[in-house]
């Protein structure tokens, strides 16, 4: 048993009726680590996060978050983490500022600190001049930026980021990651992220778990993954592990052709 683990998952399984979305997975995340879940669409990343964050009941297996059981100690678990969801989760009828304020109150961030961070985060995500606009008037990327700002408003022990950079431009992506790395270093916040972008996992994560069809097929630092699969790039390692191309929503048709060609060459 890893005594340094802040997240422990043992033989976790989640079935939706007969369909097994998460199949007896086990892993640990260490205190202060940045840990990435890398896997294709439908691999079971979000389902796992939902179980860890008390939103879904597992079918079987044990989970400990900061020492607590999400099944029976929901309150303690919820006090331990913050999350940026993959799907939209803002209130469209409120302004950007009001959305942040509501979050800050729910998470009991003291008023003065709350206001300070709200301003700081709105600057970081470039929404300060739009703070009094209704969210329904925001573009997809602006909403995403606001959700991220909201997720960073309170400083939890564990931060879950479910594909946080989807739909973000490269500048904002970079800002986000440097802010997250900063939080991780300065406040020792453990980060659990999922992503389709291999270069991202490579750059920010201390360790990566590759997940496919509900199974964890490999865990390790990117160097370890390359070594295990005897490949040169994380993308090749991923292909070797899953035999799957990542179905990246931003992939251009040229990219897809390239990936397709590579898969085809391999098969021959």
């Amino acid at each position: 048993m890893n005594t340094n683990a802040i997240i422990t998952v043992k033989n976790l399984t989640k079935k939706f009726d007969d369909f097994v979305a998460v199949d007896t997975i086990s892993f640990d995340v260490n205190q202060g680590e940045i840990f990435a879940f890398l896997g294709p669409n439908g691999a079971g990343k979000t389902t796992t996060i939902k179980i860890l964050t008390t939103l879904l009941h597992p079918t079987s297996g044990t989970v400990r978050i900061n020492g607590f059981d999400p099944e029976h100690q929901k309150g303690d678990v919820r006090k331990s983490f913050g999350i940026v969801f993959q799907d939209p989760s803002l209130d469209d009828e409120l302004t950007a500022w009001e959305n942040l304020e509501l979050h800050g109150v729910l998470y009991a961030v003291p008023k003065q600190l709350r206001r300070e961070r709200m301003k700081q985060l709105l600057e970081i995500v470039g929404l300060m001049d739009r703070k009094d606009d209704f969210v329904k008037k925001f573009s997809g990327g602006m909403r995403r930026r606001l959700e991220i700002a909201r997720g960073l408003l309170h400083h939890p022990k564990i931060l879950f980021l479910d594909e946080p950079t989807i739909g973000l431009d490269p500048q904002t992506r970079n800002h986000l990651w440097s802010y997250v790395e900063d939080l991780n270093k300065k406040e020792g916040i453990t980060v659990f992220l999922t992503t389709h972008y291999m270069e991202e996992a490579n750059k920010v994560a201390d360790r990566i778990a590759v997940i496919d069809h509900g199974h964890i097929v490999a865990v390790g630092s990117s160097a370890e993954l390359l070594e295990q699969t005897r490949t040169q790039t994380l993308e090749d390692a991923f292909l070797a592990l899953t035999g799957n191309t990542i179905r990246d929503e931003a992939a251009t048709s040229v990219d897809q052709l390239r990936v397709f060609a590579r898969g085809w060459q391999k098969r021959r």
Binding site: T53, R78, D87, S89, L90
Partner: peptide
């Protein structure tokens, strides 16, 4: 509505009863 538009999740994981 809040479930459909996603806002419900935000309140469901909040560390309050």
């Amino acid at each position: 509505w809040d479930r459909q538009f996603g806002f419900l999740k935000e309140t469901l994981v909040a560390p309050v009863p």
